[in-house]
Design a protein around this nucleic acid. Sequence first.
DNA 1: CGTACCCTTGATGGAGATCAAGTGCAGTGG
DNA 2: CCACTGCACTTGATCTCCATCAAGGGTACG
Lengths: 240, 240
Amino acid sequence: MNLQTIKASCSNCNLRELCLPIGLSDEQMQRIDDIVAVRRKIKRGGMLFHNGEAFSSLYAIRTGFFKTSVATEDGRDQVTGFQMAGEIIGLDGIVNDHHTCDAVALEDAEVCVMPFDRLEDLSREITVLQNHVHKVMSREIVREHGVMLLLGSMRAEERLAAFVLNLVQRLHTRGFSQSELVLRMTREEIGSYLGLKLETVSRTFSKFVDDGIVEVKQRHIRILDTDALKRIVNHQRECD
Amino acid sequence: MNLQTIKASCSNCNLRELCLPIGLSDEQMQRIDDIVAVRRKIKRGGMLFHNGEAFSSLYAIRTGFFKTSVATEDGRDQVTGFQMAGEIIGLDGIVNDHHTCDAVALEDAEVCVMPFDRLEDLSREITVLQNHVHKVMSREIVREHGVMLLLGSMRAEERLAAFVLNLVQRLHTRGFSQSELVLRMTREEIGSYLGLKLETVSRTFSKFVDDGIVEVKQRHIRILDTDALKRIVNHQRECD
DNA sequence: CGTACCCTTGATGGAGATCAAGTGCAGTGG
DNA sequence: CCACTGCACTTGATCTCCATCAAGGGTACG
């Protein structure tokens, strides 16, 4: 296995407030440190886990950027999400003790390995941790509801606008700009996530540029008019 | 409130193996009975909970059939799932202490009310129950991955075939026929779930009838050729 | 028995897919 | 340093599937 492992420590991790509940005592934090014993590095293009693999751990992303995707037997696949620092990945594996999607690093990444059985043990003793785990899973369910809404009822422009706004908002939470971002994924991966072909993604970006809403230079995006993007998402029909 | 409440009991419920983990002792079962104290009846068309409502409980469906749906500010909405006896509903509410979707009964229904805080309490003491809750949530995440795949990459025929197969399979688990089912939802609700218009759903059913794959009489569906449906789902391109 | 809703079917239109060509950029090796 | 190669991206032309618009029919229920 081409993976590197290093000792992890949550207590002095600056992503603590993203991964963990607030209000943990020093002693509780120490016990969490003990089970989140190991970090793992994944090279760009490498897999954190893959469909069919036995499930043992959840992963908290420390650095880097991932995509998760599912596939049909006949070869089509669908990107189900893009995950960044502070987010938890691997929840799909719990139900059947095997992962049902692939997680691929879109840039060099590092994750904290959280053995799930130990996490369950600790959740039984630390109430706020238990509740936190439930909220993380519920958040993922709600996020996917949003994607279903997007895929089921939005047109291409709305999908892409919603996508860009979502990405930049999450990056902003992590201290990055509200108006600039660098895409870590290809047009094809964006298209797969949004249920569009890569040409449509490209054309739609071009249209946004023509309309003066964004600047696009390869994967570098600068948002010139956030409100216009929001209007596109919420208000498809210009008439009313 | 137009709801009726009655005392619930899991220990002699025939859906036990759908809602609860196996291997509970009598004493553990009794404690679960204690927290699942109440059942609630919902009339056809009534709401179990709605978007924005404070979250307090999960619900186990005892009888009846529900749809859940989310909506955008500008009024479009998307059915996110259809739920039947033995399934758990309300997981969306955990993350923000408020529900983010509507749950509507498509026929007269009865649910068991499971106050979530008490469920968390008990989960800390009964390991298999804790793990069960995690699996229920993970199962929902995986289910939604499947819907995303459907919405993002399948054509109308594939979507409807997958939908019918999924429904009949779940009904079969509950002791119903493998080849016959009664739809509890309208064509429009099916369309919303599948990202299609009701006319397309209707036309696609008609095409299946023409092809001798199913019989359709209003909401009564009889599957004549399950394999053909499976082939439509897995093998979109007839050429290869 | 009438009314309302749900469903089916036909005709037409349009958003996005597909097919195709060309451009720009990064990495490689001469 | 520059040609070469490969990949990601853009843009144009055409096609197709599904949406939309429209009309009619069946069924349930008061």
